[in-house]
Simulated assay, not measured.
Amino acid sequence: MNASDQQVPHRRTVVSYVQRGERMTAGQQRAWDRHWDELGADVSALPEGPLAADSWFGRRAPLVLEIGSGMGETTAQLVAAEPEVNYLAVEVYKPGLAQLLLRAEGAEVSNLRVLRGDASVLLREHIEPGALSEVRIYFPDPWPKKRHHKRRLVQPPVVELIATRLRPGGVLHLATDWTDYAEQMMEVCSAEPLLRNRFSAEPGGWAPRPPWRPVTKFENRAHEEGRAVHDLIFERADEPEPAADR
């Protein structure tokens, strides 16, 4: 066998999400059938190259990306409260996206589009540098067991990728109710030269909880179980931050 004929072994990619069942309620299915073709798309089916967001939304406006919209309760409220932005939600869980479409329909919003698939692929292959005004990651899977920490979404390569896709002054907003994950987020974001902490003068560098961020079920559960919730707000710097200032 020639060297050129040898098969390269497949390398498994570590992902930050779990594949779950896709059974939907009747209401979710109806919402999916009514809105998916217009408001949704699979990341794997997107045309090669940058996402034509302005064309998809039918207008030019600041583009906000939420990674991991879950069942959409918080997302739908944020979309309704910010009609001036184009709101893009990416999620792997089909019933969650269907529920978000159902909530958006009830709120009569027009500034939401949803994508199903891997956010890292979306960012790397379909979002242009400087295209995003904000990226939001609220209560990502904490993967609490130490051996699973490598599956956590907020890792240096992902944060670096996000930073390049933010416009100067654009915001990366994170929230978690797991203290060790919050500390990891803080370490990773603080080490990214393109980001600076808006609240570096606050104790620990943590951001005050924004009053406009809806309280999620995860946040309520954290309070009930005595866990602190941490917000982190970083912004894209015009130029990479000097190492001595970090």
Results as ranks from 00 to 15, higher is better:
106 G>E: 01
207 A>V: 01
204 G>M: 02
173 H>F: 06
150 K>G: 03
130 G>I: 00
26 A>T: 14
98 A>G: 10
140 P>S: 02
162 I>L: 08
188 V>M: 12
128 E>P: 01
184 Q>K: 12
116 R>E: 12
203 P>L: 10
127 I>W: 02
60 R>T: 15
102 L>R: 11
208 P>F: 07
226 G>F: 02
25 T>F: 03
166 L>D: 03
117 G>C: 08
156 P>G: 14
182 A>P: 06
170 G>K: 04
44 S>E: 14
17 Y>H: 07
226 G>K: 05
88 L>I: 12
145 K>P: 01
159 V>A: 11
143 W>E: 01
64 V>P: 04
223 H>C: 07
65 L>I: 10
61 A>T: 10
200 S>F: 14
81 A>W: 09
100 L>F: 10
174 L>Q: 00
104 A>G: 11
84 E>R: 15
237 A>N: 13
159 V>Q: 15
164 T>I: 04
8 V>F: 05
89 A>E: 10
84 E>P: 12
62 P>L: 05
105 E>D: 09
22 E>A: 15
23 R>T: 08
129 P>K: 06
36 W>T: 03
119 A>F: 02
100 L>I: 05
52 A>W: 00
50 P>S: 04
59 R>Y: 04
45 A>I: 12
133 S>R: 14
203 P>F: 13
115 L>E: 01
207 A>S: 07
155 Q>L: 13
190 S>H: 12
59 R>D: 05
118 D>A: 02
122 L>E: 11
25 T>A: 03
37 D>L: 13
103 R>A: 08
236 R>W: 01
60 R>G: 10
53 A>N: 10
238 D>I: 09
173 H>T: 05
244 A>L: 12
82 E>N: 15
146 K>W: 01
